[in-house]
Computed example of a mutant assay.
Amino acid sequence: MKLLHCNGLLSSSMLLLLAAIFALASWEQAMAFDPSPLQDFCVADMNSPVRVNGFPCKDPMSVTADDFFNAARLDQPRNTMNRFGSIVTNVNVTQFPGLNTLGISLARIDYAPLGVNTPHIHPRATELLTVLEGTLYLGFVTSNPNRLFSKVVKKGDVFVFPKAMIHFQMNLDHHKPAAALSSLSSQNPGVITIASAVFGSQPPISDDVLAKAFQVEKNLIDWLQSQFWENTNY
């Protein structure tokens, strides 16, 4: 009886230990973003034919200081002459191979008067936005329930958009441009612009599906799908 009792206690202890291990593993997965580097650096070899989750490394002996430099000139305003009145200048691993495996990237966003950076998501990154010039109305929407967190922010203010949340910004000034700098927690955050993804996908999503989803007539969906869906987030 004592042995059975001991075995029972041992089994219970083992179950609790396993449960704790699985919980910790699940927590670590939930907290994970880009993989942690296993070396000092891994400058991306953009010429390599190898395809991995990220980019292969250049030979460390061929790396120079220029691999850790990018003349992005993020202090310079960009051309916002498009239908949305905004443009995003990305500095991620594609433009800056030295960011490979480091889990960070940047973007400058320029807004014309009343310009909008339309609702979009970054599937692999949290975004920290700092206003450089102007006054912005911005916000994000949570998953379930769909709650909007929005605020008017001014020069020097900082706002965070949690990972993979739909978010947007709009310049409230009717006459002056605005600008912001975003820091992102991924070397390659990705972007899905909601309107162009839904109505401008190739091949298009069935208008039956979209008419049912948005509870509108199919002719409206057909008209929306016929428009040119410019993406200014690249």
Rank of each mutant, 00 (worst) to 15 (best):
A195E: 12
H174A: 15
I166R: 00
A20L: 00
K155V: 07
N231I: 07
L38N: 14
T89M: 08
A195M: 10
H120E: 05
F140V: 05
V43C: 07
T101D: 00
F55M: 13
T89A: 14
T126N: 08
F140E: 03
T118Y: 02
D222E: 15
V191W: 06
H174W: 07
L38R: 14
E133F: 00
H120S: 04
C42W: 09
K218C: 01
A112N: 03
N47F: 07
L184W: 10
K2T: 03
M165A: 07
T142K: 13
Q95I: 07
N53S: 13
P203V: 06
H174Q: 14
D173L: 06
N79V: 11
A23K: 00
Q215D: 10
L132D: 11
K212A: 15
L129I: 14
I109E: 03
R83S: 15
P37C: 12
L148P: 01
L181Q: 07
L181S: 09
V63S: 05
S143A: 12
M31R: 14
N117E: 12
F159Y: 15
M170I: 12
D59M: 05
F68E: 09
I166Y: 02
P49D: 06
F22T: 10
Q95H: 09
M81Y: 09
V158F: 11
V152N: 04
A164H: 14
L210N: 11
V131S: 12
A23Y: 01
S186Q: 04
A44L: 11
P204D: 08
R78P: 00
C57I: 13
I21Y: 03
A25L: 12
L184V: 09
E217L: 03
